[in-house]
Amino acid sequence: MSSRSAERAGAQPTRRAARTERTRLSRDGVLQTAVRLADRDGLDALTMRALADDLGVEAMSIYHHLPNKNAILDGVVEVVFAEVESEVGGFGVPPTTDAANWAPALRERILGARRVLLRHPWAPWIMNARGAPGPNAMRHIDGVVGIMRAGGMSFDLIHHSLHAIGSRVYGYVQELSDDGDAPAPAQLEQLAGLAPNLAAMLAEVAHDDPDSTLGWCDDQTEFEFGLDLLLEGIERRRAAEARD
Rank of each mutant, 00 (worst) to 15 (best):
S3Q: 13
A6W: 02
E7M: 12
A9N: 08
G10M: 11
G10I: 00
R16G: 07
R19Y: 00
R24T: 09
L25A: 06
R27N: 08
R27Y: 05
R27G: 08
D28P: 08
D28N: 13
A38V: 02
A38N: 07
D39Y: 00
D41R: 11
G42T: 01
L46I: 06
A50K: 07
G56P: 05
A59W: 00
H65K: 12
N68C: 12
A71S: 11
V80D: 07
V84S: 05
G90N: 02
T96H: 11
T96A: 15
D98V: 00
A99G: 12
N101M: 09
P104Q: 01
A105H: 11
A105K: 06
E108K: 09
R109T: 00
A113C: 08
V116T: 06
L117G: 04
P121T: 00
W125V: 11
A129T: 02
G131R: 01
A132T: 09
G134I: 02
A137M: 05
H140M: 06
G143L: 03
V144P: 09
I147R: 01
M153R: 04
D156V: 07
H159R: 13
R168F: 07
D178L: 09
A182E: 06
A184T: 06
A184F: 09
E189D: 15
Q190W: 05
A192H: 07
L194W: 03
A195L: 14
A195D: 14
A200P: 07
H207Y: 01
D209Q: 09
S212P: 03
D219K: 04
Q220D: 15
E224M: 09
G226K: 03
L229G: 15
R238Q: 06
A242R: 13
R243V: 06
